[in-house]
């Protein structure tokens, strides 16, 4: 079973000057699980994409970033894989939810398509969600209530011996 070991909640103004802060803050928070440099950089890129979407497209004044760190229980590691226990490392990872309170996405399915952009005149690649999907283990995009968008992402870190 996954146990949540730490959480943060961070609300920022939807300004592009906060992007670097947002991705660095989440990366610093995740650093306590001792992920690899590549895992940290994947995380930073995905967070940056999600926050960029909020700032460029949502018309929301603020962006809410929630993150939780988890690891699996010792019992599970012992009972489920008894033969591998000597080499088995704890699994751990991060779950992130990035919420805006703006206009929302009319067609989420369409928005998730590679190269789809609502602002083709602004030199936009339309690859934000594709990058998030590729750099994280899971991506879920839903409507927020009463309006806005929630982007949920998870990533498991490979070596969690220190967690």
């Amino acid at each position: 079973m996954k146990t949540v070991i730490n959480t943060i909640k961070l609300q920022i103004d939807a300004k592009s000057c906060n992007e670097s802060f947002a991705r660095t803050a989440v990366a610093s928070f995740a650093a306590q699980l001792d992920p690899t440099i590549d895992e940290i950089n994947d995380l930073k890129t995905a967070v940056s994409e999600a926050v960029t979407n909020c700032i460029v497209h949502s018309n929301s004044k603020t962006v809410l970033i929630e993150a939780s760190l988890w690891r699996n229980d010792r019992e599970e590691a012992v009972t489920k894989k008894p033969t591998k226990i000597l080499t088995e490392k704890y699994q751990c990872g991060i779950a992130i939810a990035i919420t805006d309170f703006g206009t929302g996405i009319a067609n989420i399915e369409k928005a998730l398509e590679p190269f789809y952009t609502t602002k083709p005149d602004q030199e936009r690649s339309g690859m934000g969600f594709t990058v998030m999907q590729s750099f994280m283990d899971s991506l879920k995009v839903t409507h927020a209530k009463p309006s806005g968008t929630i982007v949920q992402m998870t990533k498991t870190f490979n070596n969690c011996a220190g967690a």
Binding site: R124, S125, T130, V131
Partner: peptide, 8 residues
């Protein structure tokens, strides 16, 4: 650092 904004 670079994200997909860089592609544009």
């Amino acid at each position: 650092f670079m994200d997909s904004t860089g592609i544009g």
